[in-house]
Design a protein around this nucleic acid. Structure first.
Lengths: 385, 385
DNA sequence: GATCTTTGTTCGTCGATCGGCGAAAGTGGC
DNA sequence: GCCACTTTCGCCGATCGACGAACAAAGATC
């Protein structure tokens, strides 16, 4: 008896990851008897977790019946709360987005108001997708500040007044609610969507501020206090005159964040209030703005060069508002990383702009919910109930 | 049936970690029937993996028979290869060191000669401990350079001429051999010995060069190419004139490594060739040397401050040759980290000198071997054989 | 259309686990 | 000192679940 990979939850994991799509596949992969697999699959079908599709290709004998996740009956939500927007997506159990919406919304309005808005949007999206509220199994949410993941409570978030220690999961009645930092869920979304095979990945969000989500060994690394990835206040060389809101100087965010770039453009006499304005100027062909973005890429690259040596990831993804001009930003990042990091660490490293784009956060948040629901422990609990 | 934590390997894990020390404990923790537990334990005793000790304290009824790892019959080795030394320790299955030795040895003599030396020392230590060679189940080894852990082959190590791609495990016939970077095994040793409860730990080795071992979620993080933790070539501010052997300038190692400190002391007219000489000068009360060490601590702290924001560890351990003057080094490190890192990340962070000292590497290497042997998969294989 | 191959189900067998029972080995009250 | 009580632990019949052989299904091959 080897370490038995045979519980219903494990079987479902194999189906959901596509490692095995038929009963015989499952028998081969798990080493269990075909009859045992049939029994497990029957239980999963009975619970509405798996469905049979058309029979597949024959390989010389009876064609197998394909199995896949039963995508009706269940629904999951991914919520992306930003400082000034709220994006909500409804997805099925396979991670496919069924419907999504985005509205301007001030996080500073406080949890009651913001979560009520989310709740209304969830109802609307569920109606669009033709699923009852009861089908909603779990909600994943990314918020712009540090969170104690285990409890879903924001931990002294600087830009979320009124949210400190607010127990977000308790607001929703029924589904499991998982709350994490927005950069973490973006990293997860990008990993699952574009680089599912990568073991170690960094996702850098360059917007008003600068943050980083860490996927280590395929899982999110949140750190001891859930504050891992906060690279915006790492010191960069040669900018000791640049003061930062954190009280120190020469922080990455203070020289390469969207707010800092806008400020420097204003000093040059241009109209720029936010990261979006900087992007607009670059897209309009302004050479000053372009130069600043490229220089910001180099500065971000300087910090990342150190982190590449330290963490040795396989992939670095650049996302966030500034990445809309990613050609210039990523060029600066690449330039510095390849110059300053060790060859062994950069040899198989790819550095790319985000592929999931604006959906990265809702996708990652939703997948956090789906993966929680599909975890072997949870499935075994459901099947044995 | 919940995710069954019931295989013999799992039972042994509970015994070895001290989570359960009696049969009834095991039944309570695993949820298995007492009779099943007895059967598992009998199998483990029969294989010589577990032994019964004196009966324990009664809690009002029949006193339980204590169980623990059977420390005779098995032996494990931890090998610490440095540039100029070789330390070997023999330990039992509980991680207790039975015997140890250290000799000067040049790694540059090449694998055949060095490993032959290790082999002779192993025989001597086994004889000391009164155990037959056949009792040696596994060997862990730390080497001063990057290693492909899965195969045990050094990967272009700069200071190990003749070792590139040499398949170290094949040299030893019989026991499993696990080879890793020396800093990684030191991190593991320190974690298991002094901070077994910490989830995330960084071990910094400050010697001739500067490296870092990473324990993430209780396990070593090696990175995509096994080069994670190479912090010696991260850039520090304000030292652009300091050239480094890697071809860049302002590398941490080039300004705060033992070799760099020795060079700067020579420029001041003092006799210092190595990190050990720097330590000797500090211990002799030389104020110039002391000032340099403290400044080195600040520079290391600057790099670590960034890594604390990024990785958010619970513990940072400072080890290596320079840590013999750890009062001064650690003071510099603390000073900068608490100034430059985010409060949330430093609030529960402890920064301490190494507690395992010179044994950190052999301890970690040996534990790598023991933990490999005690892994549930391996134990199940042994019991079912 | 007969045979072969592969898939999936049914059902009897067998091994492993469970849990009750009783013996062992202590504690504590009287 | 004796007896009731508690807890540990081995034994053994009852039960549960996985296995695999036999069979049915469904298409490929000739």
């Amino acid at each position: 008896m080897t370490p038995q990979p045979g519980s219903p939850g494990d079987v479902l994991t194999l189906i959901s990851t596509g490692s095995a799509t038929t009963r015989s596949d499952l028998a081969r992969v798990t080493g269990l008897a075909r009859s045992t697999i049939s029994q497990r699959v029957d239980a999963l079908i009975e619970r509405g977790l798996v469905e049979e599709t058309e029979t597949g290709e024959s390989t010389g004998g009876r064609p197998p019946r394909q199995l896949r996740l039963h995508t009706e009956e269940h629904a999951f939500a991914g919520v992306d709360l930003g400082a000034t927007h709220c994006r909500v997506a409804l997805m099925d159990i396979s991670g496919e987005i069924l419907a999504a919406c985005e509205d301007p919304l001030l996080i500073g309005d406080g949890p009651e108001e913001v979560l009520a808005h989310v709740d209304r949007r969830l109802d609307a999206l569920l109606a669009d997708a033709g699923r009852p509220r009861a089908a909603l199994r779990a909600i994943g949410m990314g918020v712009p500040g540090p969170v104690e993941f285990a409890t879903g409570r924001p931990n002294n978030p600087p830009i979320m007044p009124g949210w400190n220690d607010y127990p977000i999961p308790e607001y929703f009645d029924g589904p499991s609610v998982l709350v994490d930092n927005d950069v973490n869920v973006m990293a997860l979304g990008e990993h699952r969507h574009a680089f599912p095979g990568a073991r170690h990945l960094l996702f850098v969000k360059a917007g008003t501020g600068i943050g980083c989500g860490i996927v280590a060994d395929g899982k999110l690394h949140r750190g001891a206090q859930g504050s891992a990835g906060d690279i915006g206040h790492i010191r960069v060389s040669g900018h000791d005159d640049a003061g930062c809101r954190c009280g120190n100087s020469a922080c990455l965010e203070a020289v390469a964040g969207g707010a800092a770039l806008a400020r420097r453009l204003r000093e040059l006499g241009l109209a720029a209030e936010s990261a979006a304005d900087v992007v607009a100027l670059v897209q309009a062909g302004d050479t000053q703005a372009l130069r600043l973005v490229r220089e910001a890429g180099r500065l971000i690259g300087e910090v990342l060069a150190g982190l590449v040596n330290f963490f040795n990831p396989e992939v670095i993804v650049i996302g966030g508002a500034l990445s809309r001009v990613h050609d210039h930003l990523v060029a600066g990042v690449r330039e510095t990383i390849y110059r300053r990091s060790l060859p062994l660490a950069t040899h198989h490293l790819s550095i790319t702009p985000s592929r999931a784009g604006v959906d990265a956060a809702v996708l990652g948040a939703g997948l956090l919910a789906v993966e929680h629901y599909l975890s072997p422990d949870n499935i075994n609990r459901i099947v044995n109930a």
